[in-house]
């Protein structure tokens, strides 16, 4: 008979073997990718949650398809061979961020309407370009990445992203904090709030688009918002929230990968469900506290 402890031991060593086995590098890469992307997700997620712009991250991640489609079209039909879908994706993500930012700052249009329209139009434009490009392209593979297909090159990309996000957010920590808490006051202190807001949106766009082909749209949005939302319940200061959010991101990704490996389920949904379950449990706990105080 196998005891529980022995069972756990076998499970742990099995995961250790999977991580170190040179014949299956994809599991190791997935693990490292998850840990590395937690840094950018924790920092940007904190801003996305406190500034309440998660729907902007949603719109950006879907507009990316327009850029991917255009890049494929220009490459195949027009003959710009140096273009890759990633170039198009980055350009369209940053463009979408700047358009949304300018609309919310200058136009009298309702911001949420513009975001919704851009979201849908961006996706449609992408599908049209892909349809006009000869040959078969699976558009969905660009939107729903697969963490188990991560390459060494992808890991470098994530590292660069982490460096950009961390350095910028350390340099402008005070500016971003003042901007997110009280934009009007920051403006009155002579801070160029438009510039910093657009910078923040651009960082959000970069994080979204660079993690897209690893994690996929759904998972990027989930991992931007859920760990930070949980972290917010335990944080007194912005940087506490960022660090807690990073740690939660790492824990959810690690737990999700291990569980999906064991149960032979797709990794992305398992990771998201673990994060979602944790969020629901913690929210219910605070709801319970509000409903039944002093108990």
């Amino acid at each position: 008979m196998i005891t529980d402890a022995q069972g756990k031991d076998t499970a742990m060593s099995e995961i250790w073997n999977a991580l170190t086995d040179p014949s299956i590098p994809f599991f190791r890469y997935a693990f490292i990718a998850g840990i590395l992307s937690s840094v950018a997700l924790g920092i940007i997620g904190t801003y996305v949650v406190t500034r309440r712009i998660s729907y902007i991250a949603g719109a950006i991640s879907h507009c990316v398809l327009a850029g991917i489609g255009l890049a494929l079209y220009l490459k195949t039909v027009v003959g710009l061979t140096l273009l890759t879908p990633m170039h198009g994706a980055i350009l369209s993500a940053v463009a979408a961020a700047l358009i949304i930012g300018c609309v919310s700052m200058y136009a009298s249009e309702r911001e949420d309407t513009v975001i919704g329209a851009l979201w849908a139009a961006g996706m449609s434009l992408g599908l049209i370009f892909i349809a006009m490009t000869p040959g078969y392209t699976d558009a969905m593979s660009y939107l729903f990445g697969n963490i188990l297909l991560v390459s060494g090159k992808d890991l470098v990309t994530v590292l660069v992203l982490d460096a950009i996000v961390t350095v910028t957010c350390i340099l402008f920590y005070n500016k971003f904090l003042a901007l997110c808490f009280d934009e009007k006051f920051a403006r009155l202190r002579g801070i160029n709030v438009n510039f910093y807001y657009l910078l923040l949106l651009t960082l959000t766009a970069l994080t979204t688009v660079l993690l897209l082909n690893i994690l996929g749209t759904v998972m990027v949005i989930a991992m931007l918002t859920i760990p930070s939302a949980i972290a917010g319940k335990f944080s007194k200061r912005m940087w506490h929230m960022m660090i807690i959010s990073m740690i939660l991101n790492m824990l959810f990704t690690a737990a999700g990968l291990i569980l999906s490996y064991h149960m032979n389920l797709p990794s992305g949904p398992v990771i998201i469900l673990i994060a979602g379950a944790a969020y629901i449990i913690i929210s219910l706990k605070s709801l319970f506290k509000t409903l039944f105080p002093k108990n």
Partner: peptide, 13 residues
Amino acid sequence: PVTVMDIVLMGRV
């Protein structure tokens, strides 16, 4: 997520 000190310091941002 801000403390009282964080908020007052914004006056010197």
